[in-house]
Computed example of a mutant assay.
Amino acid sequence: MPSEIALLESRAMRVEHVGRVEALDKVKALRLLPDSIHVSTEGVARYFEVSTEVIKKVTQRHRDELTENGMRVAKGSDLGKYQRDSLSLSSESEGSYPQRRSSLTLFTRRAVLNVAMLLRDSDIARRVRTYLLDAEEGRREGYASLDRRVTKLEQCLAGVGTALQELGPVLERMSQRLDSLDQRLDATNRVVAAMSNRLCELSDGMVRMDARMDDFARQLRDLRRRRRR
Rank of each mutant, 00 (worst) to 15 (best):
I124W: 07
A125S: 14
L133P: 03
V15P: 01
S36A: 06
T130G: 12
Q99S: 14
A45R: 01
H38V: 01
R84F: 01
D134I: 08
L33D: 07
V21I: 14
R11E: 14
V112K: 11
T105M: 03
Q83N: 12
P34W: 01
E22W: 07
G70Q: 02
M71T: 03
V128I: 11
L33P: 05
S91Q: 10
T67V: 05
L104E: 03
E141M: 09
L79I: 04
V18I: 14
H62C: 08
V112G: 08
P98T: 04
H62D: 13
Y131A: 10
K81N: 00
S93D: 15
R14S: 12
L106F: 01
V44G: 02
S102Q: 12
R14D: 11
M71E: 07
R109V: 04
R72T: 03
A116D: 05
Y97R: 08
L8R: 02
R100A: 11
L32M: 12
A144F: 06
L106T: 01
H17F: 15
H38M: 05
V27P: 07
Y82P: 00
R140K: 12
A111Q: 10
L24Y: 11
L33Y: 00
R84Y: 01
S77L: 13
R72I: 00
S10G: 04
V112L: 11
R84W: 00
R46A: 15
R84M: 02
L87W: 13
G43Q: 14
L106R: 02
L8Y: 01
A45T: 03
L133R: 03
A116F: 03
E53H: 11
L106H: 00
R139D: 07
D134P: 01
G43W: 05
I37W: 00
K26V: 14
T105W: 03
S88Q: 14
L133Y: 02
V112A: 10
S91P: 01
L30P: 15
M71Q: 07
L32P: 12
S103D: 13
N114P: 03
V21L: 05
I124D: 11
S88G: 08
A125H: 06
K26I: 09
V58N: 12
R140G: 05
Y47N: 09
A111S: 15
Q60L: 06
E136H: 08
V27T: 09
F107P: 02
R61T: 06
L146W: 13
G142S: 07
E49D: 13
E53D: 10
R101N: 02
L7W: 00
L106V: 01
L33F: 04
G142D: 08
L32I: 08
D121K: 09
H17K: 11
V128K: 00
L66F: 09
R120W: 05
S102D: 12
Y97I: 06
V27R: 03
T130N: 13
D123E: 14
A29Y: 10
